[in-house]
Amino acid sequence: MKINLCGVRGSIPTTAPESQFYGGHTSCMLVSEDDDLLVLDAGSGIQAFNIKDIPRNKRVDVLLTHLHLDHIQGLGFFRPLFMPDMEVHIWGPTSTQSLHSRISRYLSPPLFPVLVRDLPCKLKLHEVGNGSFEIGHFTIQSSYVIHPGPTLGFRVKGNESVFTYIPDHEPALGRHGIIKDTRWTSGFDIALNADLIYHDGQYSDQEYPTRRGWGHSGFGDALQFAAITGAKHLLMGHHDPGRTDSQLTEMQAALKKNNSFAFNYEFAIEGKQFELR
């Protein structure tokens, strides 16, 4: 399974020169194996999608964890939506309003000039909650996680490996932080023993207490979550938009100096690719 990190910035894209090493695009991952292609979230990072990425079956599936703007703002610039021979499936969390209605709020004037109904591709929308479904040879397990509004995390199982994607997640929300009993840990089932986890790590542990309830994690909580779930490798992302490359590098070095875990962990870098076997 190949994973291409196309956007690892949180909240809003940044073009600041001092943030270009870790990257300024918001949430998007390309996951491919055999001839199946998944796009996880449609933040501004979706611009990295290349026509040559289109599978032979002319089908691409976009899985949205939730519909906050930094996860859908690239949708209107996703080229397969404008290709008549493409079959595009968009999967998103169930809510009180239909997925079509919620996506249309963005893909319509005055926010966007093209209406959903005018997109020339063969578009199919799927609402998902807690459960599992199959896309090509991938088995996807989805689960609601702690974040404001209906928000999913995804566990993507391929031929030989598992990738878990929880970009926006605050499992430590509460009086005592993350509950150690795994039955009470948000996102535990979809992250259990994953080969690679991409998890929210927006704040330093000093910042988190003043941002509690905003739906994101401190580094320490992301590490603790990975330890509880038996991760083999943790990528911390959804970097705070105000964070510079040098700050992130320093913070990562401090974390590595003060924390030792059985698994590898690092801050996610836009453009980096991973191959799970």
Partner: peptide
């Protein structure tokens, strides 16, 4: 054993603060 649904977990987290 599977985890509790997120709605249950959030109710516990709330109860823990009351």
């Amino acid at each position: 054993m599977p985890s509790y649904e997120i709605e249950i977990i959030l109710n516990r987290q709330l109860a823990d603060c009351l």
